[in-house]
Computed example of a mutant assay.
Amino acid sequence: MTDWLEILKQETATGERMEREVPDMLAHPDISEEQVRTLFAALDKQAEFAEKLKQALEKFGHDFPVIIAAERLEERYADLAAIVAEKLKAMRA
């Protein structure tokens, strides 16, 4: 049986780490457009995974606070992807 709560816990820790690291990555003067595109794709994929995780938690009847935590995780990844998309847009301008 899949331990959805453990997956949420691990993903939340990863999301928190990414929230700290992504701004530093984007601020690095030598970051390339390809690296930014790759970072965007990874964050977008994580946002999609977080959405699926939230759906699984809902399906298996987890409590509302657990669902809220999954929603926050999804939002965190979506927000980070948006920040990266803005950097990519600025690099192309």
Rank of each mutant, 00 (worst) to 15 (best):
K87S: 06
D3S: 08
L80F: 04
V84T: 07
E34N: 06
M1R: 13
P29C: 06
A90I: 12
A85G: 15
A90W: 15
D63C: 12
K59Y: 15
L43M: 04
A78D: 07
K9D: 11
Q46C: 06
G61Q: 14
Q35V: 04
H28V: 03
L53K: 06
V36T: 02
T38P: 01
P23K: 05
I7S: 02
A69W: 00
A41W: 09
F40M: 07
A85T: 09
D44T: 07
L80H: 01
H28D: 09
T12C: 06
L53G: 06
E75M: 11
F40S: 02
I67K: 04
R20N: 08
F40T: 02
T2G: 07
T14D: 06
D3L: 08
E19C: 04
K9L: 10
M91Y: 11
A81I: 02
A81W: 00
A82I: 05
P65A: 12
R20S: 07
A27K: 07
E19G: 02
L57V: 09
A78V: 05
H28M: 08
T14Q: 05
E11P: 01
Y77V: 02
P23S: 04
A41R: 13
A85L: 11
K45F: 11
D44W: 04
E11H: 05
P23R: 04
P29M: 06
L43G: 00
D30M: 10
K89V: 10
K45W: 11
K54R: 13
A85C: 09
S32A: 06
A41Y: 10
H62K: 14
A93N: 13
E75I: 14
F64I: 15
T2W: 05
I67P: 01
E86R: 11
P23N: 04
I83M: 11
A42Y: 03
K59M: 15
I67V: 15
A50T: 06
A56K: 12
L53A: 10
E16F: 07
H28K: 08
G15D: 01
M25Y: 05
Q46N: 12
R72T: 05
R72N: 12
H62Y: 14
T12N: 03
K59G: 13
A42Q: 08
E11L: 04
A50I: 03
E51L: 13
M25Q: 04
I67C: 05
V84P: 00
K9W: 09
A50L: 07
A69G: 03
Q46T: 06
K89S: 13
I7F: 05
